[in-house]
């Protein structure tokens, strides 16, 4: 990795300016668990690295306006240590915590997971199902965008030159809400998802689903928010029939590829299975969360 330049600004605006000035090969650095691997393997050309971890807003978890603000470079391990976040968004936290090993958790961030734009990124389906947004800083100032709008294809984002994600916002949580994320990997740890499924739902007092969002990973070029799958749950108590409809809707939405990690056929089937199982877990959590 020769010809690498490195700076660690403390202000978001400095970072944006440096990224813009650095040109096409300038990169924000959060945990580096994708970036360093890609630089080393030669998949990314060397250039300017802008470390975000010394920007105070980019690190840590804050409760604001009933929701949560997560600094872009906050490592997964910090998410798992935050009790309130875990109670409100267990699915988001478990998704982020599935990324890599304990060591990777010491570094890897959700924003990095998002901006790396892998279709198999684990935290993204959970964030999309959670209707999370992100605050983006760029040379022109700040803007907010839904998490689901960041990745536009494998390895490609909608971020403009100089832009980076500063924060991820999780919305306020109504009572009787629950979320869950499941993925399929051949091992038990240390694998990239063959399929991932995030489900986020809210119940009324009778246990009927009033709102549901289902997002799938690794079954299309970007994470899919499957409206039909969510709709299959709404108005039900996530009973067998609803789950079957959900399963079918999830499968119908899949547009995967066959690669070294899985076949089209297998991925499609598993998307249904995982969506169903995640919905059951999310439903159970929602029932418990008064």
């Amino acid at each position: 990795m020769s010809h690498v330049e490195f700076i660690a600004p403390t202000k978001p605006e400095q970072a944006a300016a440096a990224l813009l000035a650095g040109g096409a090969h300038a990169r924000p650095l959060s945990g580096g668990t994708d970036l360093l691997v890609q630089l080393r393997s030669g998949r990314l050309p060397p250039g300017l690295i802008v470390d975000l971890k010394r920007i105070p807003e980019a690190i840590g978890i804050r409760q604001e306006g009933g929701g949560f603000v997560i600094g872009a470079a906050t490592p997964g391990a910090a998410l798992s240590e935050h009790r309130a976040l875990g109670l409100a968004w267990p699915g988001v936290v478990e998704a982020a915590n599935l990324i890599g090993s304990t060591q990777v958790q010491g570094r890897a961030s959700m924003a990095g997971n998002l901006c790396n734009a892998s279709p198999a990124a684990d935290s993204v389906p959970a964030l999309v199902a959670a209707r999370a947004t992100c605050v983006i800083v760029g040379p022109g100032g700040r803007r907010t965008a839904p998490v689901g709008s960041i990745a536009i294809g494998p390895g490609r984002t909608s971020l403009a030159p100089g832009e980076f994600v500063l924060e991820i916002h999780l919305p306020p949580r109504p009572a009787r809400s629950g979320d869950a994320y499941l993925r399929l990997i051949p091992r038990t740890e240390m694998d990239i998802a063959v399929v991932g499924a995030g489900v986020n739902l809210t119940l009324d007092g009778d246990g009927v689903v009033t709102e549901a969002h289902v997002a799938l990973g690794a079954v299309a070029p970007t994470v899919l928010l499957v409206a039909d799958a969510g709709a299959a749950l709404i108005g039900t108590k996530a009973d067998e029939a609803a789950l079957a409809a959900l399963d079918a809707a999830a499968r119908a939405a899949c547009n995967p590829i066959s690669d070294k990690r899985g076949t089209i056929e297998y991925r499609t089937k598993i998307a249904g299975v995982l969506a169903r199982r995640a919905a059951t877990i999310a439903y159970g959590r929602a029932e418990k969360r008064a």
């Binding site: 580096g32 360093l36 490592p75 090993s101 060591q103 990777v104 010491g106 570094r107």
Partner: peptide, 9 residues
């Protein structure tokens, strides 16, 4: 925090 030193600059 436990990290992989090969993934830290």
């Amino acid at each position: 925090r436990l990290v992989c030193s090969c993934l830290v600059l």
